[in-house]
């Protein structure tokens, strides 16, 4: 082993950095890791710059564009009135993202008329640029779109159908009472945020790029809510993760949750000023 290292070191001194990166990607990374820095000049436990832009799609009821480094995710929500199922007559539903089915949002808020009408949210997430940590970006985009969501005001017409209230009323017709003036915004019972980490030897790399994900295969995704409870710990195969590593990943995620929450709050308050 030592001799191959020696040979690689010899070659390394002769060939250019870029060629070395392509020929010995793992060795290239390990050299950086031993200096506690990553090729994009980040420390090991630092996530990339993250930005959230709300209302990116004007035709959707709620939307958000999220960038984590180069990774770009677009989330959009369309609402529709549906007849609730018999099992849960006073609940609406969300189609598209499994995480939200587990009590993040009180589905009773989506009810219009018990047993007759409720909101169905269609949540679509599109990946515009994939450069690692896709789940983190997708979850953040979904959360941002949900906090941007404004449910349209509706009323019940004479036929008993739910119709949208447009801003200008046609004169002469009876002014109908909106049935959901109060509840146009969703309230989260807890907001989930996530951080993906790479485990490689003794190193933990937060928020990996696509290149890093390709070279080092063990990924752990931790999802926590604001109160620090564990929503999901997702690890598929790869090297073994020990308890101490799991706790380190959770600690990194705790810090990241605070960052993301602040970024999201700033985006929401910016929008409200506009």
């Amino acid at each position: 082993m030592g001799s191959t290292d020696g040979i690689q070191a010899d070659i390394a001194s002769e060939i250019e950095v870029d060629a070395f990166r392509r020929l010995f990607p793992l060795r290239f990374y390990e050299r950086h890791l031993s200096e506690s820095v990553r090729p994009d000049a980040r420390p090991l436990n630092k996530a990339r710059d993250t930005s959230v832009a709300l209302g990116a799609i004007s035709s959707a009821d709620g939307s958000a564009l999220v960038k984590i480094g180069h990774t770009t995710m677009l989330a959009a929500i369309k609402v529709e009135v549906m007849t609730p199922s018999l099992d849960s007559p006073d609940e609406g539903c969300i189609v598209g993202f499994d995480v939200f089915s587990s009590g993040m949002i009180n589905l009773k808020e989506l009810s219009l008329i018990s047993g007759k009408a409720a909101w169905m949210l269609y949540l679509d997430v599109y990946c515009l640029d994939a450069d690692g940590a896709l789940f983190d970006a997708a979850l953040l985009a979904a959360v941002a779109a949900l906090s941007h969501l404004r449910i349209p005001v509706v009323s019940v017409n004479d036929d008993g159908r739910v119709v949208a209230m447009s801003g200008e009323h046609v004169e002469g017709k009876s002014v109908r009472e909106p049935i959901n003036r109060e509840k146009r915004k969703l309230t989260f019972s807890c907001i989930p945020f996530s951080l993906t980490c790479i485990l490689h030897q003794k190193y933990i790399l937060a928020d990996p790029t696509a290149e890093e994900e390709l070279i080092m295969e063990t990924l752990v995704t931790v999802v926590l809510d604001l109160s620090g409870r564990l929503v999901s710990l997702y690890k598929l195969g790869g090297n073994l993760a020990y308890n101490s590593t799991v706790q380190d990943c959770v600690a990194l995620t705790r810090r990241r949750v605070k960052e993301l929450h602040q970024i999201l709050n700033e985006a929401v308050s910016d929008m409200e000023v506009d």
């Binding site: 564990l230 929503v231 999901s232 710990l233 997702y234 690890k235 073994l240 993760a241 799991v246």
Partner: peptide
Amino acid sequence: GIITSTTHGVMSV
């Protein structure tokens, strides 16, 4: 060590 972990529902760490 653990090889794989998937979770459903919310719990404390």
